[in-house]
Design a protein around this nucleic acid. Structure first.
Length: 182
DNA sequence: GACCGGATCCGT
DNA sequence: CGGATCCGGTCT
């Protein structure tokens, strides 16, 4: 029995939630199979942020970002990759946290070392968009990590964007080998 | 209906 | 640094 993070965890400011997602555990279920990964790198995207998909208003793609916190936001990019986010803030305030890298137990440390790579490894597609990750019966959850890891967090600029590139809204676990870029 | 750039990744 | 590869957003 796994207890997912509560909606109240996600329904705070995106900048507050993002670093707290580090070291949390993502669980994805497909049939009887279950995969887990430790979040080691994240980026925040907020309203009034030109790099955020929601910055120009609600569209069919980004609609979930305008809903309650704790939902998944999955989109397709560059013709071949998916990216996984968790929605933050209360209803009608858009915001999301891009999961950029996971450490997978018993796997090569580079197997999920990037936003596209981790979705490929976990078989995340648009079918995983708009899942309520605060429901313990959902196929996609985030839980607390009981092994309180002794880790240092680094905060720096976001990667791979042209607009609003100066915001220091990327966080990762220092010296972790699964982080997307050295 | 057409155009274009993108929250990536890998090999050179 | 370029190519793969396709979709969503915007404009016509």
């Amino acid at each position: 029995m796994t207890k997912p993070l509560k909606r109240s965890f996600f329904e705070r400011t995106t900048i507050e939630v993002a670093p707290e997602l580090l070291n949390k555990i993502i669980i994805i279920r497909s049939g009887k199979k279950e995969k887990k990964g430790v979040i080691v790198e994240v980026e925040a995207y907020t309203k009034d942020d030109a790099a955020c998909h929601a910055s120009r208003g609600k569209t069919p793609r980004n609609e979930v970002m305008f809903g309650p916190g704790g939902y998944s936001y999955v989109y397709f990019i560059y013709g071949m990759y998916h990216c996984l986010n968790f929605v933050t803030e209360k209803k009608d305030i858009p915001g999301a946290i891009l999961i950029r890298a996971l450490e997978i137990p018993d796997e090569d440390e580079r197997v999920a070392s990037g936003p596209g790579k981790l979705c490929k490894y976990l078989n995340i597609t648009k079918a995983h968009n708009k899942i309520d990750c605060c429901n313990e019966d959902s196929s996609l959850l985030v839980t607390n990590n009981n092994q309180k890891e002794h880790t240092q967090i680094v905060q720096t600029k976001r990667i791979g964007i042209s607009k609003a590139a100066h915001y220091p809204w990327r966080w990762y676990i220092k010296d972790n080998l699964s982080v997307s870029k050295k």
